[in-house]
């Protein structure tokens, strides 16, 4: 399913550390390797603050990794600059988590969404109005919004401006950082269908960060689960609900609010203390919240092993329990 020939971005062993004070460093991302393939979707889920946005910013070249390298079509682009950077930027578009902060408040919506098209001379200035309308309608917003400013819109409307802007260029790779959480479920569905349609037509590669596991598993060919800077499990979207092995992935599955759940039951939540990226423990990053933790888990960090084709897990005891079968 994942052919080397289709590899577009290959992130190899990316690590990012921030120096907080003279003797404290914060490791936001710890040796993460993930690939983006043509015509495939990679979903990334994980704890808030575990390094998803940091990883993705490095993978698209917005931030320099502390170590590791990024290959774009087999070429090392970790150190790229100037024209080279500009061209690869066109092919890799990113939609940000906080659209409110990403837009210039003095620019009208039509200027915001057409800016990249104008920059790469793909449209002329006098085509801006009609192009803006077309793009707005694509994300289910009225064409008249073209004349508004971003702060005169609701949260979910602003989010869709970011989506329209990124889709305008029809890039090879689209990275979406938490783009659906501000949208109602019906618009969420529209946006996902839009991305999938684009994928079908142009074979684009999609990176989709989201907290909504139920949503991602519907269309991700591969899901990477992150915890405290590390990838702890990689498996296909279809199999998440039946084959997840890592205790953190299982905890995620247990915390989903579902329309068919038993509403009288107390919600389960892990109350144990969340570790801080300033003090990553030796051994397994999930140890202090894991109900299966044993001595070896505190001593040795589990590597990410392939336990069956296209299914990788970083846990010493992946074999001892299989979530859904146990129930």
């Amino acid at each position: 399913m994942f052919e080397r020939d289709d590899l577009i971005i290959e992130a190899r062993h990316l690590t990012k550390s921030y120096q907080i004070s003279r003797n404290r460093t914060l490791t936001a991302c710890d040796d993460v390797s993930l690939n983006f393939y043509k015509n495939r979707t990679l979903g990334i889920v994980g704890e808030s603050g575990c390094g998803k946005s940091t990883f993705i910013r490095m993978a698209v070249g917005l931030e320099k990794p502390t170590s590791g390298e990024i290959m774009f079509h087999g070429k090392n682009i970790t150190e790229r600059k100037g024209e080279e950077l500009r061209l690869s930027r066109r092919n890799i578009q990113m939609i940000f988590q906080d659209p409110g902060e990403a837009f210039h408040p003095r620019m009208k919506v039509k200027e915001i969404i057409c800016e990249p098209l104008l920059n790469y001379n793909l449209i002329k200035k006098n085509q801006m109005d009609s192009k803006a309308r077309e793009l707005l309608e694509m994300v289910e917003l009225p064409g008249s919004f073209a004349e508004r400013y971003p702060h005169d819109m609701s949260g979910g409307q602003r989010q869709r401006i970011g989506i329209a802007r990124a889709l305008a260029l029809e890039p090879e790779v689209i990275i979406c950082d938490e783009i659906t959480s501000a949208l109602d479920v019906s618009v969420q569905q529209t946006i996902v269908e839009l991305l999938l349609d684009l994928q079908k037509r142009k074979q684009i590669s999609i990176g989709f960060i989201s907290h909504d596991l139920a949503l991602v598993q519907q269309f991700a060919h591969q899901i990477a689960v992150m915890y405290l800077g590390n990838v702890v499990e990689i498996l296909s979207g279809k199999e998440v609900s039946t084959k997840a092995r890592h205790p953190y992935t299982q905890a995620l599955l247990d915390s989903i609010f579902d329309l068919n759940m038993d509403f009288s039951k107390e919600i389960v939540s892990m109350e144990s203390e969340i570790p801080s990226p300033l003090n990553i423990p030796d051994g397994c990053p999930f140890q202090n919240r894991c109900i299966h933790c044993m001595k070896v888990c505190r001593a040795e960090k589990p590597g990410l092993w392939e336990i069956e084709p296209d299914h990788l897990v970083a846990c010493h005891q992946f074999n001892r329990f299989n979530y859904r079968e146990d129930q």
Binding site: T41, V185, A214, Q217, Q218, G237
Partner: peptide
């Protein structure tokens, strides 16, 4: 009803 039908569920519809 439209909203309820758009809620994704685990192991539910799959697009790929």
């Amino acid at each position: 009803k439209k909203l309820l039908s758009a809620v994704p569920s685990l192991g539910g519809d799959n697009y790929v």
